Every structure is written in C-alpha cells, then in structure tokens.
Simulated assay, not measured.
Amino acid sequence: MTFDFSQINEVRLSSGTHSNAAEGMCFMEMTAWFAGEAHSDRPLCACPVLGRYGITLNDNMPDAMRDRLLKPMVPLIAGTRGTIDDEHARAKFLAMWGINKIAPIWLRAYQIPQFDALASRCEVARSDAEFRDIAARAALAALAARAALADLAARAALAARADLAARADLADLAARAALADLAARAARAALAARADLAARADLADLAARAARAALAARADLADLAALAALAARADLAALADLAARADLADLAARARTQCLELMVEGLRQAIDLGPHAGFNPAIDLEQRHNALKELVTA
C-alpha cells in the first residue's frame, strides 16, 4: 500500500532551516526524516541540484501552497542521488525551464512592451549560450522595471528604449529614478549581473563533488547549477516587486501562483532525468510517521 504524504497533518512545511524535527521541517528536512537520516536539509538520498532548487521553492511559497505542492514531492525526490552526469543534466534542465517557462510569465506581467519581446526570446531559447545571455538580460530587465514601477516618468523613458536589458546605461537610469537602494535589493534578490555569492555558497558541496570529475565538467556543472538557482530566485524576486505595485497586485498574485506551480512541475520533470527510486523499500513509512507524531506530541 502506498503511503499518502498528504495525511501528514502533525507538521506543516515551513520556510528556513530548523534545529530539529520537533521545531519544524522544510521540504528537504521532511525527506531526511522519512529516509531515516539525521536531521538535515541536505539528505544523502536526494540529488543536491534538486535539493537546492526544492529549498528555493520551499522558502518562497505561502504556507498553504507549500503543503499542497511540496508534500507530495517528498517521496519523489527521495532516491534521486546519482552521478555527476545526472546532476549536470538536471541543472541544465532547470536552467532551461526557468528561462523557457517561468521568466516569460513575470516579464509579461510588468506590461512593458519591450519585456514582451524578451519574453518571446526566453520561450524559444535552446542553447547554453542563449540561456546565459537571456538570463543576464532578464535580470537587467527586472532592475530596469523596478525603476520604472517606482517612477512613471522613468517607466516612460525605459519603455522608449529599443533593448532595455542590453544597454549599459541602465544603472544611470536607475540612479535618475532615485532608487538609492536598488543595488542592495538587487543583491538580496540575486538579480544583479554580478555573481550570486549566496547561491554559489549553497552549491559549494556540488562544486566539491564536481571537482572529482574533469575540470571542464566541474566548471560547467557549477555554472549551470548556480544559473538554475539564480533564475528561480530572480523570478520570485521579480514577482515580489510586482506585488508591491497596487495596480498590478492581482496580476502579480496570479503570476506568482502560476510560476510556483510551474516550478514544481519543472522539479518533477527534472527528477525523471536520473535515478528516482523513492525511499528504500526497507523503510516503514507508516512507522516513521508514527514516530513523527510522537515527537510532535512530546
């Protein structure tokens, strides 16, 4: 009989890390619990690339959506740890998914004509070079849109430009829009063109694993994995900016829901690109559930 993870009502998935299971669980910490591993958001049974992506989703979802969308993924992400090639394929797929499927939604939600053209480019991008180029352009477009949404005059000036993302004078444009805090916000959201140190720190273990492979493969994997995490964070940060604009709040809420659901679907499809054995058949999931009930009650 298949264990139904939707019946786990004792613990609601929550954002952030937790010191122990009694304090709470994120998506990956629940996976570790049912795998019988030590409390961790990096369970050994799961692919590191999928785990980092899953945590990004976990930490940016509303509570009700997190339980609805991520609890059913717990048994799917278990048993996904594979080879360095599996991680590479999954990282590349998630980077592609973010550009092809997710970025176009929030770019169009800004309702700026030039962003529609960039969204169309996102949808048809196929090569690694296109992914990296468009990811940088989308990040710059989001920065420009912040300036535009903060000041109607700046918005008009931005909309008149032929290629918002490619021009080097976006920083000057932001300064004229009096967004003194733009650099800090961009850094926190990982939307700046410079390296996302936080994302790369999260992926340090991935880089270490890749170091055992050929140098070229290691660099490519670390870059793709960082790009996948960066794309997810950039998408979610852009939607948060949209939500702050009163006249776009409803549109932003719908776009956010659509993006999060698509991100989960991307995670589901990435799981299939490598080993996905589920939990060890020797593990009694019902017994682990009962143990969790006892822990919470105590």
Rank of each mutant, 00 (worst) to 15 (best):
A109T: 11
R137G: 00
N100K: 13
A119C: 12
A147I: 00
D63T: 15
Y53C: 05
M61Y: 11
P62K: 06
D133I: 07
I99W: 01
S127P: 00
A144R: 08
I55S: 03
L76A: 11
G82N: 03
D133G: 01
T83R: 02
A144T: 11
E123N: 04
I55C: 00
D133F: 06
P104K: 06
W97R: 12
T80E: 06
A117Q: 12
I99K: 01
N60E: 14
A109N: 08
Q111G: 09
A148Y: 08
A78H: 10
L140C: 04
R126I: 09
G98E: 06
E123Q: 15
T83G: 03
K71T: 14
D63C: 06
M96Q: 13
P104G: 04
G82C: 04
C122F: 03
D63S: 14
P104N: 05
M73A: 07
A136R: 15
A91T: 09
H88F: 05
A138F: 09
I99S: 01
P75I: 05
F115G: 01
A64H: 11
R126F: 10
A64N: 10
S120C: 03
K71N: 12
I102V: 13
D116G: 06
A145T: 04
K101S: 09
D59F: 10
L69D: 02
F115W: 06
L118H: 08
A117I: 12
L94C: 03
A109M: 12
D59M: 11
R68M: 10
R132W: 05
N58C: 13
R81M: 01
